[in-house]
């Protein structure tokens, strides 16, 4: 018997719900994380640990194992987002769980300490963890607040187009500057500098560019007194420079927002690895001095 290929009447599982990572499945992970924290608090209040609550009690160990497990799982997000394996997982669900379970560590790990802090590797691990969490909270804030500005700034222009336009403007400027007197040409050519776009880390993040060479060229040209032959060329150059200044403004804002969206990761991730080291030391030493 030959048959037409089987057709799948029911469509595949699809994720066409339009919910952000924070609202994912109607705050499922917020609810779970809050529940977990609540149970931990209740446990802390109800279990009477003598002489005073500490990480070495049975309850303390339970919390400690839970926290270590959570930290390792939270670190795996870095792998998950890069490993595009098949399967019905969604990165949004992972991020949602990462955010809320990560926040629950504030409660779980603090209870695990039994509020015993000191100048030692144990507290170091706790402090590093809090740094990771605080930068993470900042990350959530920028993820919620900045995307709108990112889209609004670029409109329908892509990053590639912005760079191409700058390159094109630079080429036109260098061609136009050729017939000018050498001092005027020098002023114009100052602005033609492919490296003068974003600057270093600080300039990128603050979007302050006091040494902008295009701005400088515009200012100097405004003061220049051109000859009759140069004047019409200068007017054209002026238009191009104005255009370049506005493109630069867009590029720099684009770079600023994109930098802000990733900058926190440069603390969040290294601090996580620091935490992993301190945590290993903490676990090993605790067992060593059992």
């Amino acid at each position: 018997m030959s048959r037409p290929p089987k057709t799948n009447v029911n469509r595949r599982t699809r994720n066409d719900h339009h919910e952000s990572f924070l609202r994912h499945k109607n705050f499922l992970w917020l609810k779970r994380a809050a529940g977990l924290s609540l149970i931990a608090i209740l446990g802390y209040a109800l279990i009477d640990v003598r002489p005073h609550p500490n990480g070495g009690s049975a309850y303390g160990y339970t919390l400690g194992i839970l926290c270590t497990g959570l930290i390792i799982w939270l670190m795996l997000l870095g792998l998950r987002k890069r490993a595009m394996t098949p399967g019905a997982w969604s990165l949004k669900a992972w991020v949602s769980a990462h955010v809320y379970l990560g926040l629950s560590l504030i409660v779980l790990a603090t209870l695990h300490t039994g509020f015993q802090f000191g100048w030692n590797v144990h507290t170091l691990a706790y402090v590093l963890m809090m740094i990771v969490i605080i930068t993470g909270i900042y990350g959530v804030i920028v993820y919620v607040r900045l995307p709108t500005a990112l889209g609004a700034n670029r409109g329908e222009v892509t990053q590639k187009l912005m760079v191409e336009e700058l390159v094109g403007l630079d080429r036109q400027l260098s061609i136009l500057a050729r017939p000018l007197t050498s001092d005027l040409a020098a002023i114009v050519l100052v602005s033609v500098d492919p490296k003068n776009i974003a600057g270093g880390v600080w300039r990128r993040m603050t979007n302050q560019h006091p040494n902008c060479k295009t701005r400088a060229a515009l200012d100097q040209l405004a003061r220049a007194v051109p000859s009759a032959t140069d004047a019409p060329i200068l007017a054209e150059i002026q238009t191009l420079l104005d255009r370049k200044a506005s493109v630069l403004k867009m590029v720099r804002t684009h770079i600023q927002i994109r930098s802000l969206l990733v900058a926190w990761l440069y603390i969040h991730v290294p601090a996580t690895f620091g935490l992993l080291a301190a945590l290993t030391a903490h676990v090993v030493s605790v067992f060593f001095y059992w």
Binding site: H18, K81, L91, K92, V95, P147
Partner: peptide, 11 residues
């Protein structure tokens, strides 16, 4: 869609 971390991509 699966790889979008924030839920911005939908089909």
């Amino acid at each position: 869609v699966r790889a979008c971390p924030t839920g911005a991509a939908i089909r």
